[in-house]
């Protein structure tokens, strides 16, 4: 039975990670196609990818969109959570529900809605519009994480700060936010990873400057190549790094 459970564990991990392993392995393929047989190891494709100006530009765009949209989502989500955790109004439940609701709407619907809205308003598509889309999907996440982290302990510390003469913005900046440093960082990094590999919204809401997933998609249109595997591996590497950073600096400290 012990052996069986180990086999099961191995099978489960293989199921999850085999595609990634294959993707990464064939990014080193010394040949024209990322398919078996494996013809030897080369870093040529990585050189080609990093030498491709469009790809590198897309990479920088993605990093910018992810960082800025996550920061905006975090600030808005935190402020909303702070307000709703304090004030008991008849509409609190409804407000809270409406803030979390976008989580249940598919990205495609959100993207289409924003696209129609931007067309109506005459807003030209750009990285900014994609960034706004990412704020829409990440705000509920940031709100939910911040809201869950707020407790009585924090409420009384804020009360003490006010009692000692702190104006409201200093209460937020010097007491509320620092006390929630770990969950806020978690919300931020999760938002960054979601924005980093989000495709549909970025595809529909960008025009000339695009993010990395959109660029990869346009590469795929011209057929399979180990170069796409190399880009995919780089994207994966960034996501993994973020998760590891999160694990080490945030979640471990919370425990």
């Amino acid at each position: 039975m012990r052996v069986l459970s180990w086999v099961y564990l191995a099978a489960a991990y293989a199921f999850v990670f085999l595609p990634v392993v294959v993707l990464v392995a064939f990014s080193f393929q010394d040949g024209r196609l990322p398919v078996p047989p494996f013809q030897g190891v080369t870093l040529d494709w990585y050189a080609a990818v990093l030498g491709d100006r469009d790809l590198v530009a897309a990479l920088v765009n993605s990093a910018m969109v992810a960082t800025v949209s996550s920061l905006v989502a975090l600030v808005l989500g935190f402020l909303a959570a702070h307000a709703l955790a304090r004030v008991r109004l008849p509409g609190t439940m409804l407000l809270r529900g409406m803030l979390i609701a976008p989580m249940t709407v598919s990205y495609l619907i959100i993207a289409l809605g924003l696209l129609a809205l931007f067309n109506q308003m005459g807003v030209r598509l750009s990285l900014w519009t994609a960034g706004i889309g990412h704020v829409v999907i990440n705000l509920p996440l940031c709100f939910a994480i911040s809201y869950a982290a707020m407790g009585d302990h924090q409420k009384s510390a804020e009360r003490a700060a006010r009692d000692l003469g702190a104006p409201e913005w200093k209460v937020l900046f010097l007491v509320s936010a620092p006390m929630l440093a770990a969950p806020l960082a978690a919300a931020f990094f999760l938002s960054v990873t979601f924005s980093w590999d989000e495709f549909i919204i970025a595809f529909l809401l960008t025009r000339f400057d695009v993010t990395l997933p959109v660029e990869i998609w346009s590469m795929l249109k011209s057929g399979l190549s180990p170069a796409t595997n190399a880009v995919g591996s780089l994207v994966f590497l960034v996501s993994v790094t973020l998760v590891v950073v999160l694990e080490i600096f945030v979640f471990r400290r919370v425990k």
Binding site: S156, A160, R162, D163, P178
Partner: peptide
């Protein structure tokens, strides 16, 4: 007059210290 503008301060039962 708001608490911050009053010549009073409070010691709370749960201490309410700033943990950070």
């Amino acid at each position: 007059v708001a608490p911050k503008n009053r010549p009073t301060t409070t010691v709370f039962q749960d201490y309410a210290l700033f943990p950070h």
